[in-house]
Write a protein that binds this DNA or RNA. Structure first.
Lengths: 213, 213
DNA sequence: GTCTATAGATTGATAGAC
DNA sequence: GTCTATCAATCTATAGAC
């Protein structure tokens, strides 16, 4: 349910999207000018306006291009976990539910530079309460997050949905801050943490916190 | 140790700093122009350059004005916890150590609108790996964070410092995402969560995660 | 210290030739 | 579709009157 499809882009459009994504992550969306994008992508200055209409629609294209496949993968994992639990006639456990969200996210963030860049953009969007693209982002995230709270609520009926809601926020915050682009000023040792170990660490960290009385 | 002092500002300078802080949080640092700041602060357009030199130094002033007292408070709490443990001749427990960092932060974030705004700015800085003010921010945070890892390491000798480091990142991420300005698109119920309950929730969530084998 | 005026650079967007 | 040229708006910063 809720699987969305991607628009189809030409080669030039993809070159612009790729370049914009990288520059948005490095310098922030608003500090990145159309001239920076078009010169780095080696296309004409007028190309962005010709292919996307304006700068805002280019930003939307960057969001959709990454978030639609990522959320489809998250949804697929959650569906699988819930389906397997249904077969066994018992609720999925906390770790499985959180893993269905954390695992695809970390795998995505570690896939390549472009994906890392996108996660930086997403994190920035989540932090800023007044961001102009927040509404689009929310509309893409809400269905999945609501399903997660609902699934957790079935597994942990003694914990109120609002508390689960709060702890899911903690979980997402922990996950976002675990990513390479976001390092607090400690040693950078962990940056090369084995990806499977990282997924296990976050999932365990969040699960024990989630199940607290 | 490591207590820093604040510079002394005139009324006009404070008016500019207050206004800038709010606009930085609402629209981002780079999207906020000197005209937006000076017109909202009801001072002349030239006032920022006269009082602070340039835009960058104004941003630094906003950072220092908030981060110095906040970190002094965090340091004081950590010193107290470590001192009490020393008297009892046993290491401080995980919850106390994390509480010394989380409690002053959440109290600060809930103090007033200006403080909430500042936390949004800090979160944005932490997210962006290439931010030009990241170095200043890191230099202010590193001493305290190193002490936290050291204290946790004494309490949890079976867990490697790099793992504690990683879990401290999870903790900070969870804390940042718990704040009012940063809401994932779920119900907004939690936004008015009782402040003491919130501090307890985050501290417990992080402590159980931190102590995992 | 405050203000106006303006310099000098950069921005997003578009018109029109090819 | 691509390109050059350019517009109108906006930006930071400063000079100089008061």
């Amino acid at each position: 349910m809720n699987y969305l499809e991607l628009p189809c882009y030409t080669k030039t459009q993809l070159k612009i999207i790729d370049t914009a994504e990288h520059l948005f992550a490095c310098h922030g969306i608003h500090s990145t000018t159309l001239r920076m994008i078009t010169s780095a992508a080696k296309v004409n200055l007028a190309a962005v306006n010709y292919h996307f209409g304006n700068k805002e629609k280019l930003i939307q294209a960057v969001l959709l291009r990454n978030l639609i496949p990522l959320n489809n993968e998250r949804q697929q994992q959650l569906d699988r976990v819930l389906h397997e639990a249904e077969i066994k006639c018992q609720p999925a456990n906390t770790k499985q539910i959180l893993h269905s969200f954390i695992m695809p996210t970390i795998l995505f963030a570690r896939r390549n530079v472009a994906c890392k860049d996108f996660m930086t953009i997403v994190a920035t969007l989540m932090i800023n309460p007044n961001n102009e693209f927040r509404q689009l982002f929310n509309s893409l995230m809400t269905p999945l997050l609501n399903q997660l709270v609902q699934a957790l609520s079935a597994t942990l009926p003694n914990i109120s949905p609002s508390t689960l809601n709060l702890r899911l926020q903690f979980t997402i915050g922990a996950m976002i801050f675990s990513m390479r682009e976001i390092d607090i000023p400690l040693t950078d040792q962990h940056l090369d943490t084995d990806i499977n170990l990282l997924i296990t660490e976050i999932t365990s960290f969040a699960s024990t916190g989630m199940e607290q009385p």
